[in-house]
Nucleic acid binder design. Structure first.
Lengths: 344, 344
DNA sequence: ATGTGTGTCCGAAACGTTTCGGACATATGG
DNA sequence: CCATATGTCCGAAACGTTTCGGACACACAT
């Protein structure tokens, strides 16, 4: 059975015997309305099940909030590949809901300008702000949003002029992994990067080099292996490293998928993990408990990231001065992919 | 630099020398406008970068589409736990984008009525329809949406009156798993269910029983183990089964996480998988390639499910008669968690 | 000449809300 | 008693769009 028309402010006014003006002011908590009058208005509104029409409200005042946050998935079919994203997304939705916001998910159409999705959302006033994932050091989306003056928060610090709110990892994020490996006795420590044009990979790489320096170990260029984000790219990248006559005894991968790729490549070369090669991942993805051997990895926690992302974004939207950059410190989860180095 | 006011229909009218009325009609492709006039209007609109104000449009005609689909996450912190969801979501967003829709993600607040989120979205006219995941045989959300006349599609068939559009598994979905096990020589085949009040679990259970019957095997009640959705609930559920003095030689789990739980429980009891116990999962989650042993599992494909869900929902929205129920047939991915049964 | 169509066009009203400017009482101070 | 302030209230306009009802010009038939 279909409902009748939904009640309008006019109905509430008639019901309460007030003018439309005064009803509106009463419901919106303005000052110049007598206590008893407000009471009557509220009571009538409640009795009728009145809920204000957002379209009309926003037509009148284009600045009212939509109470939704935008998140544009990155292009390419393998975008979400990272199991990490699923959990992160859930955390974001959760936190947003608890603050009264929803999440608008979209994705660029095939070979569309990356900022087009953002333009659409802004023009349509569908969102109050954006969460940006997988941001690059030089990212047109960031430039666009800064210029447009729309609130947004990035995961990873993006350099440049203008207000750029971010939630990022501490600058010594890789340190615990290197400390752990050094404590085991490793001195030949390599790394499997993600593409370094991305802010997060760049930070991890800096931290990796600093951590080595901190232990007086020099970073060897031939032990640094550029990789993509996914398992298969890591498998490919591992080829020459393992063929080298002076391979590292330990490897830090910038995400768990890449670590799995490294483990697979090692297996293909008949190299035992962890006894011939130790591997540390990053993210503590669900699968890292299940791999063989179970993966030692750095854990930031999807929930913590999601929570901070939303908390700061909502702060930026509702009270720009209260938003603040946040740095998260990863914790090392030690499993079985790391061990003492082989004696040579 | 901040833009000036965005152009309105009035501006386009002035620019093109037409009335507002005629401009509107020209832009909306009505009949009674001369070819040259339409030309002028379109040209002016384009020159000004005019884009119609949705609020105003919808204030005037409440029936215009919002072009977004709603998806409400299930409550509880472990909602998304299933890595399967991440991929499914990405597939849904992709397919929606290619049809010009976005996805509105929300989640119920703590101890809130499950339908409240749907009510909010409908009242606010934020979405044109819903995708329902993890639906139960008797689901208040379904009843609500049917009554309200809002288009929706469920994953799994929900019985009851009214139009209920669904994408579901074929009724013999479990058959390939059982066939495979029987071919290996198994006759004692058990199953680890998900809660049977959910439509998908119910269908899988029916199919499981039918598949056994098809091979002339009787379903033994003590080989049917009720489990939750997640690994830990499966570990717990496995206890008594493995302690029994006549355990099955093979087990079909209703999802991969549960299968992992079963593998873990087996390991704890010193039971070798696959040589003492074969295990088949469902979903082909990312991690199933990595577990030890790698999991033999039934695969529907998140992308296929997401694509069909969106395709049918959009059909239901835009042309109700063209929407149709869809049945998907899973395919068996054979890995190493299944083998011939032990000779006793 | 009058009437009937047909192809184009437009004014004005309407959607539901918020707010500007003022009105009307009553109280306060002189 | 008048002037001024204060506490409440309301009418009307405005946001940008669509559409109803009609108007106008012209062609064609009568």
């Amino acid at each position: 059975m279909s409902r009748g028309q939904r009640p309008t402010l006019r109905d509430v006014a008639r019901e309460s015997g007030l003018s439309i003006t005064q009803t509106s002011r009463a419901l919106n908590g303005h000052e110049d309305v007598a206590a008893g009058t407000r009471e009557r208005a509220l009571e009538a509104a409640h009795r009728l099940g009145y809920v204000p029409n957002q379209e009309a409200r926003r037509l009148r005042d284009p600045n009212v909030r939509s109470h939704s946050l935008g998140l544009v998935l990155v292009a390419g079919s393998q975008r979400f590949s990272d199991p990490f994203f699923g959990e992160l997304l859930a955390a974001i939705v959760d936190e947003a809901a608890s603050r009264g916001y929803e999440l608008q998910l979209s994705t660029p159409l095939a070979d569309e300008d990356p900022v087009a999705s953002y333009e659409r959302a802004i023009r349509a006033k569908r969102v109050d702000g954006f969460v940006l994932l997988r941001t690059a050091l030089s990212d047109p989306r960031v430039d666009y949003l800064v210029e447009e003056g729309v609130p947004f928060v990035t995961f990873g610090e993006v350099p440049g002029p203008g207000r750029r709110l971010s939630v990022s990892e501490a600058s010594d994020c890789i340190q615990p992994a290197v400390d752990h490996l050094v404590a085991l006795g490793h001195r030949q420590i390599g790394c499997l990067t993600e593409p370094l044009e991305y802010v997060i990979a760049a930070r991890r790489f800096e931290s990796f080099k600093q951590a080595l320096a901190h232990h007086g170990i020099e970073a060897r260029a031939d032990h640094i292996v550029p990789s993509g984000f996914r398992e298969d790219s890591a498998v490919a990248a591992m080829g020459q490293l393992l063929a080298s006559n002076d391979p590292p005894t330990a490897l830090v991968a910038f995400n768990d998928l890449v670590a799995f790729g490294a483990m697979r490549a090692a297996a293909q070369h008949g190299i035992d993990v962890p006894h011939e090669l130790s591997i540390v991942g990053f993210d503590d993805v669900y699968a890292s408990r299940l791999s063989s051997p179970p993966l030692t990895t750095l854990r930031l926690g999807e929930r913590a990231i999601g929570r901070e992302l939303v908390t700061q974004l909502v702060a930026a939207i509702e009270d720009p001065d209260s938003a603040t950059d946040v740095h998260l410190t990863p914790e090392l989860v030690i499993r079985e992919s790391t061990a003492v180095p082989p004696t040579r």
